[in-house]
Structure formats: structure tokens, C-alpha cells
Amino acid sequence: MSVFPFSAIVGQDEMKQALLISAVDPRIGGVMVFGDRGTGKSTAARALSALLPPMRIVEGSRFNCDPDHREDYPEELTSKRVRRVPVPFVDLPLGATEDRVVGALDLERALGKGEKAFEPGLLARAHRGFLYIDEINLLEDHLVDLLLDVATSGENLVEREGLSVRHPARFVLIGSGNPEEGELRPQLLDRFGLSVEVKTPDDIEQRIEIMRRCDAQERDADAFAEEWKAADTNILRQIARGQKALDKIDVPEAILTDAAELCVAVGADGLRGELTLMRASKALTALQGKRKVRREHLIAVAPMALRHRLRRDVLDETGSTVRIDRAIEELFG
């Protein structure tokens, strides 16, 4: 199946920026995308995954074992050989059972033969890649809780009848949904690092260009990919440069003060807002090839870092993005 080039996606700039920020720093906690059907949500996520260079794994590993961190995979050390595979992009279907998601222990084999037999699930497949959940607002609450716990801890623990298996499960969690079909609980929304809103474009020229590019890709996917190869390569270099520079980015004390004041002004719940603002600002700074976080970086990421963390104000029915923009104007001018 051919993947649409990331750089060829028309519009949806905030969504694309959020995905790039998460690719530079997966610790941010993934992206929640709200919007209409057919607005390129899964296309963009899948395109970013396909854009990234192949990753190194230990040959035969069932957990995408990183050869440079073999100590994390005590049961995966049988092979010394290394091979390259595409960065995984795993779709989690709405009807998935818990065993399919986290993996299953074979109790009969364990009790009868004394062997710990484990069948890895979707979390193992997604390790070091992307886990995409469409219509996450329709997913059963206990599965969402489980996924967010694993995404936060970076580890999957399966326990059945006194037996347990644990393995690394670090991935970028991307959820999408249409708010008209049901809302996510606020405490679950808060666990996502970034939240973006996508809308069906109303600009005629933009809609025409989308049709042109989709038609070109359907007629000759290879030629279309070649046409956008240079642009995708530039984005890949930008991500790689950002990842390398991330830990060297300077965050002045004034920026930390700005982040705290903004979170207080908009009434953000908890302290995840400040932490996400700081991390996302650093990632954006690194993406742009800068060395120091500036206020404009903070302002650029503020809506996506905070809009899903605001307490509902019964006296203010304006949208969360409007409230954030208003607070930015009052604080920073």
C-alpha cells in the first residue's frame, strides 16, 4: 500500500507541526486530533511514520529490540545480528480485546510445562514507532486507561494467575476523533501531550489542490512520491537535526515564568500544562534550528499544549483556543 508523502499534504498546518514536534520529542506524550472525517488525520500520521528512516532491531526480536539497549530485553538476547526495518505504524481497531492489545500469556503451557509462553500484542508491535487509534472517544474506557498508562511509563506489564511478563513499550500515541460522536473524559485528554483541531477546508483553491494531488497519487504513486521526495527529505533532515539538538536547547528563566503565568491565566488543570509547554517549545526551537527558546515559540505551541487542559467556565462559553489567545494577548501584548 502506497503512503501519501507528508510534504504533499495540503493545509492542516497545526496538525503537521504537532506531529513533527512529537517526532522530535516523543516524551511530550502524543497527539490528540479532533476533527471532521476525511480531513487527513490518519494520512498525516501514517505519512510521518513512513518518512522516518528505518530503525535498527535485533534480528528475530518480537519487541523491536534496540541493539544499543539490549539490557531492556532480557529475553531477546539470543541473536547478535542486526537488521533495519521500517518504523512501525500500528492501527488499533475499536473492537480489539485487551489480550490483543497488551499480549497474551499461555496459562495452559505455563502450568503444564512450566514454560512462560507470551504472545506479544499491538503494544509490542508499536514499540519505537506510532500507535494510532481512530475514534478514540469510542474506545472502551479501561483500554484507554491502559494505553495511556503504558504510553506514560514506557513499559507494558501483563499479569495473569501469578505469572507476569514486562517489556518496553515506548511509542508516539496518536488519537483521533469527532467531538460530535462523544467526548473523551478530561482526565484522559490531559494525558495527551498535544491536542489539535482540524476542519474541512472551505477555501476553494485548497480543495481543488487536494483533488489534484490525490488524483496524481492514485494514477502513479511512484511518480508522485518521487515528485515530493526532495521536500520529504528536507523534513527528515529537520527532524534528525531537531532530535540531535534537543538536549542542548537553552530555556531561559523568563520563558518558564511565561509558561507558568499563562497556565494560571487560562486555568489549566494540574502541572502537565507547564511541562508540555516547555517540552513542546524546546522541540519547536530545535526543529527551527535555533538554540534558545523564545516567547514566540511558547506562543506558537500554547494552543495545542493547553486547549484540552482548560476547566470549563460556565460564565465563558467561548472556545478554549479563543480563551488561550485572549490570555496571550493580555499577558504578552
Score class of each variant (00 low, 15 high):
L138G: 01
L138K: 12
L138A: 13
L139D: 04
E140D: 14
E140S: 10
E140A: 01
D141H: 04
D141Y: 00
H142V: 03
H142N: 12
H142F: 06
H142P: 08
H142M: 00
H142K: 03
L143V: 00
D145E: 01
D145C: 05
L146E: 02
L146P: 00
L146I: 02
L146F: 09
L147G: 00
L147N: 10
D149I: 06
D149Q: 15
T152H: 10
S153Y: 10
G154N: 05
E155Y: 02
E155L: 04
N156K: 06
N156R: 01
N156G: 00
L157I: 14
V158K: 07
V158C: 00
V158L: 11
E159H: 02
E159M: 12
E159N: 09
E159K: 08
R160V: 09
R160T: 12
R160C: 13
R160H: 09
E161A: 15
E161H: 12
E161T: 10
E161V: 04
E161Q: 11
L163W: 00
L163A: 02
L163M: 12
S164K: 10
S164D: 08
V165W: 08
R166E: 12
R166N: 10
R166P: 03
R166C: 02
P168M: 08
P168F: 07
P168S: 08
P168C: 03
P168R: 04
P168E: 05
A169R: 11
A169I: 13
A169Y: 08
A169L: 05
A169E: 05
R170G: 05
R170L: 11
F171C: 12
F171P: 09
F171L: 01
V172A: 11
V172C: 12
V172Y: 07
L173Q: 06
L173N: 03
L173I: 08
I174W: 07
S176L: 11
S176Y: 04
S176N: 10
S176G: 15
G177H: 07
G177C: 12
N178Y: 04
N178G: 06
P179T: 13
P179Y: 15
P179V: 08
P179Q: 10
P179G: 13
G182S: 13
G182F: 06
G182C: 10
E183L: 15
E183T: 14
E183C: 01
L184Q: 03
L184W: 02
R185F: 06
R185C: 14
R185E: 15
Q187C: 13
Q187V: 14
Q187E: 15
Q187D: 14
Q187W: 08
L188Q: 15
L188G: 01
L189K: 14
D190E: 14
D190N: 13
D190S: 14
D190A: 14
R191P: 13
R191S: 14
R191A: 11
R191Y: 11
F192I: 05
F192Q: 08
F192A: 09
G193D: 13
L194N: 06
S195G: 05
S195H: 14
S195Q: 15
S195C: 15
